[in-house]
């Protein structure tokens, strides 16, 4: 639904130029998307490019996402920058759980998107971080250039203002897990 404007309420023409009417939700979304605080969570190679984005030349602060926090409890977007391994996966999940709502995840790099170069023989690499946490933005590249990460942030901001929340692969995995759990519980009850 489009946001209501001053015209919709048939305000006095003089007031129309000085009054903005909108929903509180929209204002909240506007504030949220322009002040993203990422958790500084470097896993591997991609973390170097994440640092480059925060540093001199690329300066993500221009887009309001430069306040890298060391604590997940103070941040609202997690950039999973680097390979997630099976040993690391529960910790990634816990960090995600520690973040306050609303929270967003950018899967940065081929490894987090789907295992990357380690997809076939890498026994210890999780085939995509979306098997562990729901992902909002997938950013391919090995590693992605800093420009690409800036683009990912812009896309995330767009998503936030659109209030979209479709995390398909994670949802499918969760549903699968839930089914298995139910089946196991059902089997035990039957047995």
């Amino acid at each position: 639904m489009p946001e209501p404007t001053a015209q919709d309420y048939q305000l006095d023409p003089e007031l129309q130029s000085s009054v903005i009417l909108t929903s509180l939700e929209w204002v909240k979304g506007w504030g949220r998307r322009n002040a993203l605080w990422p958790v500084s969570f470097g896993l591997a190679c991609c973390a170097m490019e994440m640092m480059a984005v925060a540093a001199t030349k690329y300066d993500i602060d221009r887009f309001g996402a430069g306040v890298f926090r060391a604590s997940p409890r103070q941040s609202d977007v997690m950039i999973v920058a680097g390979t997630v391994t099976h040993k690391m996966a529960p910790r990634v999940r816990r960090l995600y759980d520690q973040m306050p709502d609303p929270k967003y995840v950018i899967a940065m790099g081929a490894c987090t998107v789907g295992g990357g170069p380690y997809v076939k023989h890498g026994y210890h690499v999780v085939q995509g971080v979306d098997l562990v946490v729901p992902v909002d933005i997938y950013l391919p590249g090995c590693p992605p250039r800093p420009e690409a990460l800036i683009d990912a942030f812009r896309k995330l901001q767009h998503r936030i203002s659109e209030k979209r929340g479709d995390t398909l692969r994670f949802d499918a995995v969760e549903k699968n897990r839930e089914d298995q759990r139910r089946k196991a519980a059902g089997g035990e009850a039957a047995g």
Partner: peptide
């Protein structure tokens, strides 16, 4: 021990599939 020549890939580890779903 993965670097034994006869080691076989496990299917999943703690609920996270090693082969993608």
């Amino acid at each position: 021990h993965p670097l034994r020549k006869d080691w076989e890939f496990p299917v999943e580890y703690h609920g996270v599939p090693i082969v993608p779903p």
